[in-house]
Amino acid sequence: MSRLTLYAHPKCTTCEAARAWLTKHGLTYFEKDIRTAPPSVAELKTMLKACEGKLSRISNTSGIEYRAQGLSAKLPAMAEDDALGLLASNGMFVKRPFLIGPKVALAGFKEPAWQAGLLKK
């Protein structure tokens, strides 16, 4: 597999588990701090497609900033491009870890999904 980019938060335990899993399986990746370098709108579109068009699956719905902004009510009413632009403006609105690369797009860390998406035989 070519280049993988992992968007993660430095203090996120789920992100730590994802890093450990990637290392355990010998997968190299480039890591970006999701707070200071959030995914682009194009990357979010790719992830949204992989998540069957469900915005809630790429949104950090349990995040403090997400809840403080009332995004659970606002995002569904927004046009897709506007919603993705908002998510791209603040990485804390995006579900993490967020892994994207050639032929793979995974939001959140669930080992079976990562195994299926990254260790295809």
Rank of each mutant, 00 (worst) to 15 (best):
L87E: 06
A77N: 10
L6W: 03
K32F: 00
D81Y: 01
C51D: 11
G101N: 12
K121T: 11
K120M: 11
G108R: 07
R96P: 02
V104D: 07
K74Q: 15
K32N: 00
K110A: 14
A79E: 14
A68H: 09
K24V: 02
L27E: 06
V41I: 15
Y66W: 11
P76N: 03
L48C: 10
A83R: 11
A17K: 15
A73Y: 03
A105D: 10
L119F: 03
I100S: 04
A73S: 12
P76R: 03
G53A: 07
S72Y: 09
K121Q: 14
G108Q: 05
H25L: 06
H9K: 05
F93S: 03
A18W: 02
A88V: 07
N60P: 06
H9W: 01
M92W: 09
R57Y: 07
Y7W: 04
I64V: 14
D81V: 06
A83M: 15
L106T: 00
S2F: 08
K24H: 05
M1R: 11
P38D: 09
G108C: 04
A79V: 11
K110C: 05
L75W: 09
P76V: 06
L84W: 13
L99A: 06
A116I: 04
K120V: 13
F93L: 14
N60Q: 09
S62R: 12
K45A: 10
G85C: 09
K121D: 14
E65L: 11
G53F: 05
I34C: 00
N60I: 05
P76I: 03
C15Q: 00
K54E: 13
F30P: 01
R57P: 01
K11Q: 13
K95G: 04
I34A: 07
H9G: 02
L44C: 03
W114R: 08
S62I: 00
E16N: 14
A105R: 02
L84N: 10
A107T: 02
T14D: 00
E80N: 07
V41A: 11
M78A: 13
S40R: 00
